[in-house]
Structure formats: C-alpha cells, structure tokens
Design a protein around this nucleic acid. Structure first.
Length: 271
DNA sequence: AGACAGACCTGTGAGC
DNA sequence: TGCTCACAGGTCTGTC
C-alpha cells in the first residue's frame, strides 16, 4: 500500500522516463476510479510533454504546459514503466505512451486511486491547499505537534495521521514511529508532553527517510516506478506483528483498532 | 471545531 | 477442496 516513501520512490523512478518526452498515445481501459478519469485526458495529453514530476503528500504532480495532472495511488495503485508490446495485466487501467516506446502504466486492483486535473494552482485546489507540512521538512517538528494538539482528546496515533497536522504519515509509519518514540498510540494527543512530541517528530522523520532509502515498503502489490520491489517490509518492528514478541522486551505485541485503523503496539515499551 | 462513521473496491486469507 | 465473508487501507463526505 503506497505511503509517502512509496510515492516518493515512484516519483523518482518514473521521472527520467517521462520528463520532456512527447506523449504519443493514451489508453484508458477503466474510467471508473475513485474519481472518474477526465473525459478529455487523452485529447489533452497527446502531443504534450510533462515537466518534472513532483510529489506533495501522497500525490504525484505531473505538470504539462498549462495544466497539471494530479495522480493518487490510493491503497493498491502503482505507476511503473512498461514498454510498447508489454501485455497489460488485469487492473492496468491507464497507459501513457511516450515517443521511444516507454509507457507510464497505472495499475490499481482496488481502484481507490485516481488521476485528475489539478483545479487551478496548487494553492487553489482544496485537495492540496489544506495540507499540512511535509514530514521531512523543517516546518514539521515536535513544537508543531505540541501546539496543534493542546486540548485534543483524540488518540495521538489518529492525530498524527491527520493531514492538516502533517502529511504522509499513514497507518504503517504512524504505528512504527510511535513504537520508536515509546508512546502509547491510545494516549490522548492533548496529554503528550513537548519532550515526547519532539521524540515522535524525530521518529517520524527517521522511519520515513529510512523507508525512502530502502525504496519503499513492499506489501502485496506495490512495485516501484522502475519495477524494482522495495525492501522496507523486512524491517518493520510492530506493524503486522501482532501476537509476536516485541523486539525490545519480548512481550507479546497487542492489536487494537484506533480510528478504524489496525494498530499494533507493545504494552511495556510504549507508555 | 473536533470526533467519528460511512463510502469507495477487490485480493487475500481465515474459517467452515 | 471449495465456498463465504470479514478485513485491509487513504481520503472525502456527512453527521452529531
């Protein structure tokens, strides 16, 4: 499931294949994604060239001359580079074919992702304008978490997954960062100290940066832009390990549900 | 305003 | 072996 590191890996992986190359064909096999594929996608893309692909939160931005394509991979989506002649698999919904024969191919079994035009500028499109800072930027730190959390009774895990607080912290990395910082995910956000939020902010940066270095987590159907699988899944300490022993103290890891999300934590190491 | 539930979708794996 | 069914998850929307 693509979280921020996977989207970043995808962005870097596809960039050399798509930037500045003329689009010669667009094939849409499934228009019914979470947002319907725009009816003018094909006509607007053909003959154009993308500028440098960017990432904002878990969105990929592909600029054209006058408009920008906003792509979200949802839960099960992947963008990878194929070649003309590579047979599409089931759930390969969109192909963007470039001069020279590279194909930007969108695969998404659960169709939670979408491709859409950015509405105006990034500041005007409400999907981007309300987003908090990037977790790896200096704008994101423990002070911010502390300030925004005062008076909040929601669980700290739910709080750090709020895109207004900070973007790109999905369920896997929220779970891992809370373990690394030694914080009980159930604790009310408003009752976490500044010192502990500073540890948590550092943990979030550490796990995300490590995952990007590793090329993203390989879980089920993620494949990076160049078709190379990531390797971060092997290094997860708690996510997906409920019932197994904590790597620090050996206590059996517990599974609970917080904010409708599976949560795993150590009852001894996280307080 | 904040908290929470529901909707979207389908492959996977547990349980019968 | 074959079937059914709950579950997984990001984000938007609606309700209290």
């Amino acid at each position: 499931m693509p979280e921020l590191p996977e989207v970043e890996t995808t962005c870097r992986g596809i960039a050399p294949h798509v930037e500045g190359r003329e689009i010669v064909e667009v094939i849409v096999r499934q228009r019914s994604l979470r947002v319907p594929v725009p009816s003018d996608l094909e006509s607007s893309l053909i003959g154009g060239r993308f500028g440098e692909p960017k990432r904002r939160a878990k969105y990929l931005l592909l600029p054209l001359a006058e408009r920008t394509l906003l792509w979200h991979l949802g839960m099960s989506g992947s963008l990878r580079i194929a070649r003309v002649g590579d047979m599409p698999r089931k759930h390969d919904h969109v192909d963007v074919v470039f001069e020279g024969g590279d194909i930007l191919r969108y695969h998404d079994p659960r169709r939670f992702g979408f491709v859409d035009w950015l509405k105006g500028s990034a500041d005007a499109d409400t999907r981007l304008s309300r987003l908090g800072p990037e977790p790896l930027s200096p704008d994101f730190d423990g002070q911010r978490l502390y300030r925004l959390s005062r008076g909040r009774r929601a669980a700290v895990k739910t709080f750090i997954m709020d895109n207004v607080v900070v973007v790109g912290v999905g369920n896997i990395y929220a779970t891992e960062a809370l373990f690394m910082a030694g914080i009980d995910p159930r604790r009310a956000a408003g009752r976490v100290s500044l010192e502990r939020f500073e540890r948590l902010a550092e943990a979030i940066k550490t796990v995300l940066a490590a995952a990007i270095t590793q090329g993203g987590t390989t879980l089920r159907d993620f494949v990076s832009g160049t078709g190379e699988p990531g390797y971060f899944a092997q290094r997860l300490n708690v996510y997906g390990r409920a019932g197994e022993p904590c790597r620090h103290c050996g206590l059996e890891l517990r599974h609970i549900v917080l904010g409708q999300r599976a949560t795993v934590y150590c009852g001894l190491c996280q307080t």
